[in-house]
Every structure is written in structure tokens, then in C-alpha cells.
């Protein structure tokens, strides 16, 4: 029986084919308050924004840590080093995102960050904001739930082997 989930490669192809035809929307302005920006280099700004973004997607709660606490942002950066298209999407995407608000995404309050991500998640399917949201959600969930620290509270707390599930029928 074939797998029914998309591979990472397929997913990227799906997202990137019209990347350079996309335009950001001015509707975002309504979701974001203006905040003064501390001065920082572009690399540091990107890393801060990425870290903040994945933590909005997967925040800490009483049972398990936030995405960045298990290294999701670092793994996304590592992945991008071997994939030109992904690296390009991150570069263009975060340049756009941080340009939408003084100080960049990372400087927003938590509530404002949530509003921005919510807006991006509902943007037009072919737009840059939506595609950036989709690929970051895909990668963040993939890396986060591949880490045993994320499994707290789930009905799976260990890899399937070597014990298996001898209680499967009961």
C-alpha cells in the first residue's frame, strides 16, 4: 500500500512553483502595531524572527516545551543549507515579514505575533505569506514531533520498538 503523505520534496515543489509571482497584502497592516526596532544585523534578525515564528506555531504549555526549546529553528536553518529553494523561500519570506513592521516580527508582543501568523494562515493560497506559513508549519511540526520531548501528554511516549504494543487488542 502506498504512503498517502506528501514527501518534503513534493511539498516544497507545491509551495514554491509560483513564489516569485506573489505579492504581500496591505491587509497585514491592520494586524500589526508599530514597535520601535533595536538595531541588529540581518542574520541575527532572521534567526530571531524564525525562532519567534516557530514558537508561535508550537508554544510551550504545561506539558511540553516550545519549538525552539527542542531546536526546531536550528534544524530548519540546517535543512535550508542543503536546499537552495527552501533557503530562498526563507530569505525572501522573512525579509518580507520583517519589513512589514518596524523592528521586525520578533519584536512584536506575543498577541501581535499570533495575529500576524493567523492572518498569514488565512491569506490567499498563492501568496507569499501563506506559502511561508505553510512551509514553516510543515517543517516545524515535522521536527518538533520527531523529538521525544514533544511526546508528553500524547498516547505515545517512546519509539515503537523494541517493546512494540503487546496490549494492542485489549
Amino acid at each position: 500500500m502506498p504512503p498517502s503523505s506528501l514527501s518534503r520534496r513534493q511539498f516544497l515543489q507545491l509551495l514554491l512553483w509560483s513564489l516569485f509571482a506573489m505579492r504581500p497584502s496591505s491587509a497585514l497592516a491592520n494586524a500589526v502595531p508599530e514597535i520601535a526596532a533595536p538595531s541588529k544585523g540581518p542574520r541575527a534578525a532572521f534567526e530571531q524572527s524564525l525562532r519567534a515564528f516557530v514558537d508561535v506555531l508550537i508554544p510551550a504549555d504545561a506539558l511540553s516545551a516550545a519549538a525552539s526549546a527542542v531546536g526546531v529553528d536550528a534544524q530548519i536553518i540546517a535543512l535550508s543549507k542543503n536546499d537552495y529553494r527552501f533557503r530562498k523561500l526563507l530569505s525572501v519570506g522573512f525579509k518580507w515579514l520583517d519589513s512589514q513592521m518596524p523592528g521586525g516580527f520578533a519584536q512584536l508582543s506575543e498577541d501581535a505575533q499570533i495575529r500576524v501568523v493567523d492572518w498569514m494562515s488565512q491569506a490567499d493560497g498563492n501568496s507569499l505569506p501563506r506559502r511561508l506559513f505553510e512551509i514553516l508549519r510543515y517543517e516545524s511540526m515535522s521536527f518538533y514531533y520527531a523529538d521525544h520531548r514533544s511526546w508528553q501528554g500524547l498516547r505515545i511516549q517512546r519509539p515503537p520498538q523494541p517493546i512494540g504494543y503487546p496490549d494492542h487488542a485489549g
Binding site: S5, L57, I58, P59, I114
Partner: peptide, 13 residues
């Protein structure tokens, strides 16, 4: 959990 998150449990946060 990865396949649940990517395919059948929508949302975030």
C-alpha cells in the same frame, strides 16, 4: 504524531 500534525489535525498554537 508527525503524520497526525501534517495531515489530519489542522491548526497551530
Amino acid at each position: 504524531p508527525i503524520n497526525y500534525a501534517l495531515r489530519i489535525v489542522p491548526g497551530w498554537g
